[in-house]
Write a protein that binds this DNA or RNA. Structure first.
Lengths: 180, 180
DNA sequence: CCGGGTCGGTTCATTCAGCGAACCATCGCT
DNA sequence: AGCGATGGTTCGCTGAATGAACCGACCCGG
């Protein structure tokens, strides 16, 4: 899609947002970043996305200030991609969309739910905690917990496995940094 | 993009949602539907979208139960596209995304704001009314009002003109049904 | 009852983005 | 030196988007 390719002429801020975030795969990359995925290879194996496309999307997201590239070791130089504040704000878009998809196109048991970590209450469709006065819950206080549903052919990549195994707080690194 | 083209293997409900709503142009079509655009020709002139793509997107949205096709006159047979309940629920995705785009990528004065029609208060980033106990405001109770910002080259299509001229309640038909 | 205009498409040739496999560079380890 | 891990880039192929042209149903004025 790329900027200006079209959508230009659309003065609406939605169009500008979609130029960045509306490309194929982009929102799934951001979702994974919320899950705590940070490394190229983990995005790759979890998303089954062509390598070139992933490289392109990561570069776009970094350029837009949605992800930040952070060198976590020299030699060999290794970077991880972490959500910026601007990226974290996309939670208020991603969660309702995810919830909408689950409400209308669910197949079988639910795979995952999202709870307010402080009280364990499941979030409402807008991402708020019904038990805490309907307050907005920042993604850092959200915990994703595996549900009873397991797909017919569960994915075996490290990210999918980790998400199935245990509850996990959003934004925190999902995988240990030092696996072989 | 189309279903199954890829994103398959992604069991997440976000992926399924994006298969429908994540294609290029689709969310802009839905946004226009909230603005009260209902007719093929109006979508066309407002979005500058290729005719074939518009026809495809409308068919997909109707097939997914997001828009409903409604014949409003026989002879010549004319249909209009109206949001279903399922489509209306996308407001909780579109508004936050629009707001996010405006916050981070604004250029110049704001073009439009969204108010709670009952009390005139501008909606918060989550689409709630701060004056009414932070209650969710259903899109039917939202009014869009033109802002001070006018683009350098304002669009002249009927939809753009109408949106610039007067406040307008979402979901209500934007244009008179009987223009020449 | 003929000609022109409107509306809502479909068709088609071109261009562009996504795909997936192969390749490559750097580094650490043995 | 050789091998594997990591994080890419390159490249040929294919499928979707683009935009212009065409089409058919219908209305209206003459």
């Amino acid at each position: 899609m790329a900027l200006g390719k079209n959508y230009e002429g659309q003065h609406c801020s939605l169009a500008r947002a979609l130029e960045l975030v509306g490309e194929r795969w982009t929102l799934l990359v951001v979702r994974d970043a919320f899950y705590g995925v940070r490394r190229y290879g983990d995005f790759l194996s979890h998303l089954d996305i062509p390598r070139a496309v992933l490289a392109d999307r990561l570069a776009t997201l970094v350029g837009a200030g949605i992800l930040q590239r952070h060198r976590y070791q020299e030699s060999p130089p290794r970077d991880e991609y972490v959500l910026t504040e601007r990226g974290v704000e996309l939670w208020s878009v991603i969660y309702p969309l995810m919830h909408w998809g689950a409400r209308h196109f669910a197949t079988g048991q639910w795979l995952r739910s999202f709870r307010h970590a402080a009280c364990g209450t499941e979030l409402d469709p807008g991402g708020r905690c019904p038990a805490c006065g309907n307050a907005d819950v920042p993604p850092g206080d959200v915990e994703t917990v595996p549900g009873p549903g397991v797909p017919d052919e569960p994915r075996q990549d490290p990210v999918s496995v980790a998400l199935r195994q245990r509850p996990h707080r959003l934004l925190e690194p999902l995988l240990p940094a030092d696996r072989a």
